[in-house]
Design a protein around this nucleic acid. Sequence first.
DNA 1: TCTGGGGTCCTAGGACCC
DNA 2: TCTGGGGTCCTAGGACCC
Length: 437
Amino acid sequence: MNTPPTPIMMHSFPRAILHVDGDAFFTSVEQALNPELRGKPVVTGKERGIIACASYEAKARGVKRGVNLWDARKLCPDLVVLPSDYETYSLMSKRMFEIMRRFTPEVEEYSIDEGFADITGMRSYFRRSYPDIARNLQQTICQELDLTVSIGLSLTKSLAKIASDYRKPAGLTVVPGNRIHEFLPRIPTADVWGLGQNRVALLAKFGVHTAWDYVNRPETWIRKLLHKPGAEIWQELRGNMVMLLDKELQRPEASISKTKTFSAPSGDPDFVYAKLVRNLESACIKLRRHHLRALEIHVSLRTKDYTETAAGARLSRTVQSAHDVIPAVRELFRKLHHPGATYRATGVVLTRLSDDRQFQYSLFEDPLKIEKIRTLGKTMDLLQARFGKHTVCLGTGLYIKRAPQHERDTPVWRKLHRLPGETARKHIRLPLLNIIV
DNA sequence: TCTGGGGTCCTAGGACCC
DNA sequence: TCTGGGGTCCTAGGACCC
């Protein structure tokens, strides 16, 4: 016979935290705006060929996030496939958070489709219980936006997040302090925010399978095994709020990255390098769009069997255009690339970002040259906006098929197709600029 | 499960200094 | 020349999230 667990918290709501989670957000927005899509299996993600979001009708047919479209259509031939329209989703998201702020100023916009709200103390203001306030919020969102959300109400962010996921869609799950001991035994560790695959597997080795097992281990034991993040989760699950709400709106990015998998893995170093330069350009476009400059770059290569190697370098000054980073990228590529290996993806990450609008030239830099490169970058952005991405690109980012050996030995060929492995030639001062319109 | 893309945070350990 | 110990800063890499 199982003995009932003993309570770990006697008070109902020393704090009242809501987690509001949009149900199948992207497809729900589509269905809210296009009534003819209601009741139909709808997915978004057409642009990448992978499902970003599946409506509940699609989920019922076995179509899930992350599945490729080809497989999804096999499961569900009448699937409605839409491209992701982030602008519209963001607008709807804004309206959702605006409604939440009518209930309390203490709101954290955690992601486009979910957020936290601290409604501690609002009972007397609204003259309602916390669950009633939560229900009211849910109804308001539904009436005004035609969207359903699932809400968890509990003492901490971690508990509220598990609770909102407990009953979906349009669920409201309330876990007061004196019910935590009944709730946690039903929650497998994998459903706890912050416990991913690795930590779940590690915990299982020690017989910890549920959130209840977790909170019944001594904190010191958890801390030893899972360090600070694990200990914070332990506190949160016991009803002690240690993760605070982050009310900051849109913190500036700490990094910008671009990764791309090729449709077929390649063993050709030129091809892989060209793809890498493409990623660099995309990352720089985003950099400029956000008015940022970068001081550090990381390059990664993923092999056919999914092992990843990466290396980074600090640049001599902050940069904003791909042009300035090419030498560093070439160097990193040389370091990482194994001749004979087959790669399936490349990536770049730009870090140590700073605001471009506060940028000042150093004494040793040639402002004229920098200004030229900056103008070039802006012009390229304009052309891309007009004619499409990558209509203008650095010549380095173009992949030109390897010519037969006898052709390759001409000086002209070498000038056009410097190989990544080769040392830079003095007479080529700038990468070629190609314009394909 | 035959595996996309864009992020953040934390920790161990090396380098360096006193 | 060898040795001790402690602090700080930085980097690589792991883990996790949506």
